[in-house]
Simulated assay, not measured.
Amino acid sequence: MTQAADWTGRIGDVWAQEWQRTDRSFAALTPHLDAAILAAAPSHAFRALDIGCGAGATAHALATARGDADVIGADLSEGLIAVARSRPPLPNLRFVVCDATAAAATPVDLYVSRHGVMFFDDPEAAFARLARAAAPGAALVFSCFAERRANRFAADLLDALGRDGDAPAGDDPGPFAFADPMRVAAMLTAAGWQAAPPARVDFGYRAGEGAAAVADAVAFFHRIGSVAGLLRDAPISARAGMERGIEAACARRLNDGAVDFPAAAWIWSATKPGSAL
Score class of each variant (00 low, 15 high):
2 T>N: 02
8 T>L: 10
8 T>W: 05
13 D>A: 13
17 Q>S: 15
18 E>Q: 15
22 T>M: 07
25 S>N: 11
27 A>S: 14
29 L>I: 10
35 A>M: 04
40 A>M: 12
43 S>I: 01
53 C>R: 07
55 A>H: 03
56 G>A: 02
58 T>F: 00
62 L>Y: 06
63 A>Y: 05
73 G>I: 08
75 D>P: 12
77 S>M: 09
79 G>V: 10
80 L>A: 09
87 R>P: 06
91 P>S: 10
95 F>W: 11
97 V>M: 09
98 C>W: 02
104 A>H: 07
105 A>T: 12
106 T>Y: 00
113 S>N: 10
118 M>D: 09
121 D>H: 06
122 D>N: 09
124 E>Y: 04
132 R>W: 00
132 R>A: 14
141 V>W: 03
143 S>N: 06
146 A>V: 02
162 G>V: 02
169 A>P: 14
177 A>I: 09
178 F>A: 06
181 P>V: 01
189 T>N: 07
191 A>G: 02
192 G>H: 01
194 Q>C: 08
198 P>I: 00
209 E>D: 15
210 G>V: 12
211 A>N: 14
211 A>T: 15
216 D>M: 04
217 A>D: 05
222 H>L: 09
234 A>T: 10
236 I>M: 11
237 S>A: 15
237 S>T: 15
242 M>T: 14
243 E>N: 15
244 R>C: 13
265 A>L: 04
273 P>C: 02
